[in-house]
Amino acid sequence: MSHPSGNLDKSVISVVNVGKSYSRSGQKLSVLANLNFEAGAAQTIAITGPSGSGKSTLLGLLAGLDEPETGTIRMDGVDLTNMSQAGLASFRAKTVGIVFQQFHLLQTLTALENVSLPLEIAGNKAAEAEAISRLEAVGLGTRANHLPSQLSGGECQRVAIARALVVRPKILLADEPSGNLDAKTGEHVTDLLFDLVRKDGTTLILVTHNEELAKRCDHRYQLRDGQLHRML
């Protein structure tokens, strides 16, 4: 406890003794218990685990969309557990990008508008130019003005990746990014994801069932009994 920051400064993500439980029909169900975990800058980390092991819960906590019951979460040197809703929002806007299994694009906005949205939220004046360049980076420069319903699944996920990375976040949270895609498209999308993350030096937390995909990461953890177990 004398100089905890010395060690933590190097970590982009630091999760200490985090616990989280849900109550289902009166019974308390512990999902995460005393979970500890660290990740450094530009590291890619895969988290695997069976369904219901708490992967989504962990992602929710890391994204600042949910609060832990115990422990602390520090992201990019900032303690999320003591932050206001406004602070968390601004943290997400600047520091974290999220890619969902189900893409979660706004159906009523075009690809370009979806991508430029985080920049606009952050108040960036040159939002559109930046968004176009990001769309081009994911190979969708020509489809900028299409609505999500006019795009294929793979294209949607590429738009989602562009949206997640458009603000150049320090951390990218990806939840089964290829889970809703066929094998070939999935591979293409994950290739793209890894390329961009490596290029930007982004810390990637990848939640997946796919062992092959997990192996592409620097470190692998398995979520079991509410705790992360390092896999070699």
Binding site: Q85, A86, I98
Partner: peptide, 16 residues
Amino acid sequence: IRDLAILQSIGARPSS
């Protein structure tokens, strides 16, 4: 409602 959640996930404040 889902759109609201998505907006929050990309850094919008719930109120805005």
